[in-house]
Write a protein that binds this DNA or RNA. Structure first.
Lengths: 256, 256
DNA sequence: AGACGTCGTTCAGTATATAGAACGACGACG
DNA sequence: CGTCGTCGTTCTATATACTGAACGACGTCT
């Protein structure tokens, strides 16, 4: 998953602290010292001290026996504060509400981080189905309309540097060839929005558009619809809502 | 805000790392090195190294100039994973949905952490008003129905150890005297649930009940209603839903 | 039951992060 | 236009965290 690394001197304990937190985040549930040790590779004793410290601080919790570790409550507060402090999320609120009202479908605002997109805000469809999407969730950029819309604001060369040659498939429809994806990005630039045809979740089609308040774009909005419910008229309405939302967001984020 | 501290040898950089993250979480927006230095008190150079490290890792972000710091995207993932991995949250899902359907009001599931409660899950009322409550938000235990319901599962002595003598008021109705609060806790134990009469937010009354799958209880559920919309019949219905929910949750969390 | 294996915990030498001061860049002010 | 003050950054002795091995407790296998 690694983002930027390799800079000069780093504070070792700080690196390990966040790596540990990310480890526990990536594998929910409780883990023994030994199993953590095997995964992260630090010496047992170093890991032990670090875990003790983080437990004292409430960022990691232990079970009743004190020998199995899991992510703690304190981590929750910090994570969600990223959303609170973000000016784009704040500025997007009315637009997302409006998109939700207009389309009656599930709306997402997401940000590109490395090769993943991160959900920043959602508006759930009020339909019978409660889709399981959550703020903070990460998905591969190449399999989502949000990610593809954002990648399309990069040059082909930048995309080649960012993504590996073959991409991990999530469904049978996921593009696994980087060059084929790049070809699709050209189409996306042409038409102004991206489509995910069950490339991420079977039965779900998503329409995404980048909000180009900076170049390359960082944030995008999308609308997800079960294919079963999709008609040509509905699709056109969604596309209109998408362009409308982009214009509104561009206006709202002008001064950022 | 401090929770447990004062244990023996702790890894200094790890402590500082999370303290820094909590600082940025507590004060959204961008901060200069000097202003952070003043708040946390670490030597400039130590702080500088730490910040550089965390920026490299994506947990802290800088603006374009690279001199102002704010919380980063990576923090988001870890925080929300606490919710994902929690068995109680998972087990509570259907019960919360049912409470939401039954009452048509805003439902909360929260956990006690020190003297605060932390929202773990919410079901928003579908009414015109979209109340601003968010998973991860912390509120003082003494001013919420959730917190009081949880505190009532502690002994008076434990409560005295936990809370200061005078409590911070949030509205004109907040109890500020610890002993008065303890007296109220006795009533809560008697009737089985807690009420917040605009002690936290003006115009909002909340009914909370602890889920005693362990002692003292850790989690509670609540139902928040604008006073303007509250009738005697509605209130009775909410209380019934509350007891019903507690029983369901107790059943669902039996094996934890 | 006995011995073994695994796991969490402690200990002491060494590598490393820390802290205070000095440096250089920028902007404010006279 | 020069001086001063502030802020971010670099430098180096010293305090400290890291490591690998040894210890002790628990559960398991034969």
């Amino acid at each position: 998953m690694g983002a930027a690394e390799g800079a000069g001197s780093q504070v070792k304990s700080a690196v390990r602290t966040v790596e540990l937190l990310e480890f526990f985040a990536g594998r929910p549930g409780m883990h023994s010292l030994a199993s953590v040790q095997e995964s992260v590779g630090y010496p047992k004793s170093s890991l032990y001290m670090l875990l003790r410290t983080l437990v004292d601080l409430g960022w990691i919790e232990t079970d009743a026996t004190g020998t199995r570790y899991g992510i703690g409550v304190r981590a929750l507060l910090v994570g969600t504060s990223y959303i609170d402090g973000d000016e784009v999320v704040a500025a997007a609120r009315p637009t997302l509400d409006r998109m939700s009202d207009d389309t009656s479908e599930t709306i997402h605002l997401a940000r590109l981080d490395g090769t993943s997109i991160v959900y920043l805000a959602t508006r759930q469809s009020q339909h019978y189905l409660r889709p399981f999407t959550r703020v903070g969730r990460r998905l591969p950029a190449h399999s989502t309309s949000l990610g593809k819309a954002l990648l399309a604001t990069y040059t082909d060369e930048q995309v080649r540097k960012l993504l590996p040659e073959t991409l991990e498939p999530l469904t049978e429809h996921t593009h696994t060839d980087r060059e084929k994806l790049i070809a699709e990005l050209a189409v996306i630039r042409e038409q102004g929005f991206a489509v995910d045809r069950e490339e991420n979740t079977l039965g779900l089609r998503c329409f995404g558009i980048a909000v180009p308040y900076r170049t390359p774009a960082r944030d995008a909005v999308s609308c997800s619809v079960p294919v079963a419910r999709l008609t040509a008229a509905h699709e056109q309405m969604i596309k209109d809502a998408l362009f409308d939302a982009r214009d509104r967001l561009l206006l709202a984020t002008r001064r950022l």
